[in-house]
């Protein structure tokens, strides 16, 4: 195979766009870890169910994927709020290990419920076939829209967290939960908002994933591990860094796939994260935590 600049550019672009979707998944995971101190592996299960939901809506001719997404996002926001009130209400008080077990349990339930109802088969939506070319790089329209939406959501979330009072309050309670409580912030309510936002992000990620990739029930487990890996790379509770780490992982994956094979790329990613965990558990982008 020839590795012309345009082929490499093609892979890097596609990788970055895919990576930005991973980033969107990881941001939700990271947000809820930071604010509510919940390690929510089930996050990927929500993404999976949104994918199937959109699929059903499209297959039954009810709506275009993007329209379905527009419904799914607010719906998931509300569901997330409810989940934090019920299923997750006691989770943040548990030890790390218990949380991991609990949310992994929920992930298994969500993943295999999907398999039970939709079967183990691989699904995908037909693409529009439209593509854009510039400088020898050909990109599917869906991929570009997906990347743009993911990037947009990252910027919007970033703006929300850094510009609005509520966003700052969410960051504050992630930064110092006890301090936030003592100065009168309602940490429980902020956790609910964070969970709701995290669900909304999952809905967005699910919608755009449907439009660009194939999927199957076990995708839930894969995404969970992948999101964890990305979030570790970004430094666990740093939301925007998670997005950047997602893009990096996407490019890394694409390049590895080009040079070797998808599974070698994945092996390299896991080996890299393994090294990161051992050497810099605080993530790539942060100075050693002071405590």
């Amino acid at each position: 195979m020839e590795f012309s600049p345009s082929v490499i550019g093609q892979m890097l672009f596609t990788g970055a766009l895919m990576g930005s979707i991973y980033g969107a998944v990881a941001m939700g995971f990271s947000l809820i870890f930071g604010v509510a101190k919940i390690i929510n592996f089930a996050h990927a299960g929500v993404v999976l169910w949104v994918m199937y939901g959109v699929l059903v809506a499209v297959r039954s001719g009810v709506a275009h994927p993007y329209v379905a997404g527009l419904v799914a996002i607010p719906l998931c926001y509300v569901i997330g709020h409810g989940v934090q009130r019920t299923l997750m209400a006691r989770v943040s008080a548990m030890s790390d290990d218990m949380q991991i077990i609990y949310t992994f349990g929920l992930l298994l339930v969500l993943t295999y419920m999907a398999q039970f109802f939709f079967g183990p088969d691989v699904h995908f939506l037909p693409s529009s076939g439209l593509a854009v070319e510039f400088g020898g790089v050909v990109l599917q329209v869906e991929t570009i829209i997906a990347g743009a939406l993911a990037l947009g959501s990252a910027l919007a979330l970033h703006a929300f967290l850094s510009r609005t009072w509520l966003g700052k309050a969410i960051r504050a309670s992630a930064d110092n939960r006890r301090g936030a409580t003592l100065m009168g912030l309602d940490v429980v309510r902020l956790s609910r908002v964070a969970m709701a936002l995290s669900f909304a992000l999952a809905a967005l990620a699910g919608t755009i994933l449907v439009t660009v990739t194939t999927f199957y029930p076990l995708r839930g487990l894969e995404l969970a591990v992948l999101a964890f890996v990305i979030v570790v790379l970004g430094g666990m509770d740093n939301v925007f860094a998670s997005f950047v780490a997602g893009v990096l992982i996407g490019m890394f994956e694409a390049l590895g796939t080009l040079l070797f094979s998808p599974s070698i790329a994945h092996m390299a990613i896991y080996a890299m994260i393994f090294a990161v965990l051992l050497v810099r558990p605080q993530g790539l982008f942060r100075r050693r935590a002071t405590k």
Binding site: I101, Y102, F104, G105, L106, L108, V109, M113, Q115, F116
Partner: peptide, 15 residues
């Protein structure tokens, strides 16, 4: 799939 769902539910329940 049902077996795995049960496993998941059991994990949550045990916790």
């Amino acid at each position: 799939a049902l077996q795995q769902v049960l496993y998941g539910a059991m994990l949550m329940l045990v916790v």
